[in-house]
Design a protein around this nucleic acid. Structure first.
Lengths: 376, 376
DNA sequence: GAATCCAGCTAAAACGTTTTAGCCCGGAGG
DNA sequence: CCTCCGGGCTAAAACGTTTTAGCTGGATTC
């Protein structure tokens, strides 16, 4: 197989140092203003005859003209850049960011991302640095803002009541109904609950919803069957000790509703090491449906959050807010756009909650997560 | 628990619209130049008496002065921004990016990331867009550049011989020695090999190293035991059909060396569904050591790539290259900095290659991946 | 008393755009 | 012949910095 790289003429033409507007205008014998109008297809270019326009565009291409982004931004007060604040580049965050990236790039926006690792100073500093760099808006993933910001903010899985913040959240009530309903249907009554760490911005809402739905469904949440995580559930090891703690109490339970998939995976391991089989002895249900949930052994039953889509929605919403803000030139403030956008969860039943050990079906996974491509 | 949010004075002081240099200078009764020198702690500020400096700094703080980033960049021709080109925000990429982000932020750089999803046009377009936005360098993760770029480039897991590109790569020879050595020691001779997809920039080098080492170790690589992946191994489902294909050949093998962990996970599932137990019937070894590898069941033996560190190295190297470039003002080109930086793999033996079923030890995981924090 | 020097500033160019106000000129209308 | 109009452009301000060259006025030197 011949090497594909054009090794021979490696240092071939790095395209000539981009010309600036002045050079281009001089080359054309026109003023910078005229050229600018044309290359930007400004409405004011209407009075410039088509031949001239063609001439200009051609020369621009030939000289490889690229407007200097800083000069442009300085003048027009636009950066086409947003900031993404996140705790850490976990699976969860990566999925949401993927959705955001997708939407942004197709509208010629870029983003600055920064992970604060739940450190207070950084949670203050990074938004400030972003603002300093003139981002036009900020998306906070699983992060609480300390102060109101001078740009539109969309929060994913945050629940902030703050001026200028739009929250994209899961319908946690529905999520609890799905999960508890499933456990109930499969005959469980002695259910252990794992509450998230207080550091996670979703914890409180999710927990409250679970409590409410449990009451409605007449499920008792025994305090001795409730455990609480202490640190951020980024990697599965945090689920392990929590489950151990639960086991140490020596209380009877047949099901465990974990805070999320990562925690569930760690918990399953702890159960296993303690001699309890999943799902035979204990049924386990997770939350999120991260990609590897389908490929655990046993594969994980979970409440799916459409994370990628939440990212897309967040990005679209933010760009809308930005547009609105630019449009209303100090005029009466627009419809103060919804404070909350809710998305629906989905129950994905796999092996960790049934005793049936069905052969794995590639198609099934494909159906659950349509973005995957399966090669025959 | 009292609500923490200061719901009451929500629209509290959004810090006064940042003042610009002109306003600040006027307020002080000084010229913009003087103020600029002082706030930037420029060497030329030496002749300005300390009291004046103090006055200026105080006023700057009081008026909340922040230099406009665009004006600054325009003038000083620096953006403190780099671009990250990647195929997709997979686990793998997220780890590398985490390392990069860390290094960048602590040096006041930000990054633009873009995922080309292996689409040719995007692989051309995104670097161009980044250059247009004046990034000072680019890190390509698992991505091949089409053209030389006018800025320094560091490639992670790429193997490009191209002017101005520094490669951060794994020592694949050593990796192959570790993996094959382990298989040999545990008594395997009939080994199946899974080659990566041609789209992945590491595939060829890894494969070649495996072939070489196999020859050295006198391991026969039977063609009928070699399978090749077709699409990018981002999610585990791509490993599944490849393993099926292998099984369909009805050839005897006792070990499988998968292209990476994700593929291994899918393969294990396929083996399982075909009635073969891992590790009892087939030993499986992966590559990468993604976080969930330790939490599979069976947990995955794998050749660990220090992905986070590779990201850190890439970022540090790129920033060095940038500094060098800025320093040499067109002067004789510096030591044309190493074309390749190699990092060492590490063998992580877990359950998928031994028959012993040891209880899971949290400490063990901690030892392998020290960045995890275990809460008691 | 003139020349020199230095501390402590200032003026202004430059970075590369966008955009508004308006200039110039040829032809149509009166 | 004068006026008006509008097509086709230009001039220049503005965006907010950084940085160099140089100005001013008082103290020192000879």
């Amino acid at each position: 197989m011949a090497k594909k790289n054009s090794d021979s003429h490696v240092s071939s033409k790095v395209p000539a140092k981009a010309a600036n507007l002045k050079a281009l205008a001089e080359h054309l014998g026109l003023s910078q203003g005229t050229v600018s109008l044309v290359v930007n297809r400004s409405p004011s270019a209407a009075s410039i005859p088509p031949e001239t326009q063609a001439r200009i565009l051609e020369a621009a291409k030939k000289l490889n003209y690229r407007a200097n982004f800083f000069a442009k931004s300085l003048r027009s007060q636009r950066s086409f850049t947003i900031g993404i604040l996140h705790p850490d580049l976990s699976d969860y965050v990566a999925l949401v960011m993927g959705g955001i990236e997708d939407q942004l790039l197709r509208q010629n926006y870029f983003y600055f991302a920064a992970g604060h690792r739940n450190q207070r100073e950084l949670m203050e500093e990074y938004p400030r640095m972003m603002i300093e760099r003139s981002v036009e808006g900020i998306i906070a993933i699983d992060s609480l803002l300390q102060h109101p910001l001078p740009v539109p903010v969309v929060s994913v899985s945050g629940h902030q009541k703050m001026a200028g913040v739009t929250n994209v959240v899961l319908d946690h009530r529905r999520a609890a109904e799905l999960a508890l309903g499933h456990l109930l249907e499969t005959g469980h009554r002695d259910i252990a609950f794992m509450k998230g760490p207080s550091i996670s911005s979703d914890t409180e809402h999710r927990w409250r919803s679970i409590c409410e739905v449990a009451r409605t469904l007449n499920i008792e949440m025994k305090p001795e069957l409730c455990v609480e995580m202490e640190s951020s559930p980024t990697y599965p090891d945090v689920g392990y000790p929590v489950a151990q703690q639960l086991l140490a109490r020596n209380q009877h339970f047949t099901a465990l509703f974990a805070y999320n998939d990562v925690a569930a995976i760690g918990a399953i391991r702890a159960l296993f090491d303690a001699g309890r089989r999943v799902p035979d002895d204990v049924t386990v249900i997770g939350f999120d449906d991260i990609p590897s949930a389908a490929f655990q052994n046993p594969s994980l039953t979970t409440v799916r959050q459409p994370l990628r889509r939440m990212g897309e929605i967040a990005a679209r919403t933010l760009l809308e807010l930005i547009d609105e803000k630019k449009a209303q030139t100090g005029g009466g403030l627009s419809k103060d756009s919804r404070e909350e956008i809710s998305v629906e969860p989905e129950l994905v039943v796999r092996e960790s909650t049934t005793c049936r050990r069905a052969p794995f079906q590639a198609e099934e996974v494909a159906a659950i997560t349509p973005s995957f491509s399966i090669t025959t």
